[in-house]
Design a protein around this nucleic acid. Structure first.
Length: 138
DNA sequence: CAAGTGACCGGGG
DNA sequence: CCCCCGGCCACTT
């Protein structure tokens, strides 16, 4: 559990932001941090997910209400943090219709050009042929 | 209390 | 394209 109010506020913000990720879409830790106005702290986003309570916890934010599976790293890959954890995440995404393919190295990969959700794009990067991310109109 | 680690990211070599 | 390094900050040893 968080040690301070500030830490709890941060984790709550992280969970709320992740809930904004649409069903069947994925985003990155870094982008969640960006949405929270803290682009320099993608690691803290992961820390919060690590401490995400179980569905049985009874808390408002838990593994059943927060789509933790929709967050991967900036390379679109799922890192193996624990035994079977990556497979669990991959499976959860597949149930949402997200195509997750595994390479020979046992790592799972998602195609951002098809399932990526990045509502905020950095300025000063415009004009070049980036024919992706058409910003869904909900 | 100090040092190490990590569900990460971007830049430089 | 791959590897290494600094930064960030909570949590662990």
């Amino acid at each position: 559990m968080p040690r301070s109010e500030e830490a709890e506020a941060w984790s709550n913000a992280v969970y709320a932001a992740i809930q904004e990720v649409p069903y069947g879409k994925v985003t990155s830790y870094g982008h969640i941090a960006l949405l929270l106005g803290e682009p320099q702290r993608p690691r803290q986003v992961g820390v919060c997910l690590k401490s995400l309570p179980n569905a049985e916890s009874g808390l408002h934010y838990n593994s059943a209400t927060v789509p933790w599976q929709r967050v991967v790293n900036t390379k679109g890959m799922i890192s193996h943090r624990g035994p079977g954890s990556a497979e669990r995440q991959a499976q959860a995404l597949r149930l949402e219709g997200v195509e997750v393919r595994s390479d020979s190295m046992g790592e799972f990969h998602v195609d951002f050009s098809r399932y990526g959700w990045f509502p905020k794009h950095l300025p000063s990067e415009e004009g070049d042929g980036e024919s992706e991310d058409s910003d869904d109109s909900e």
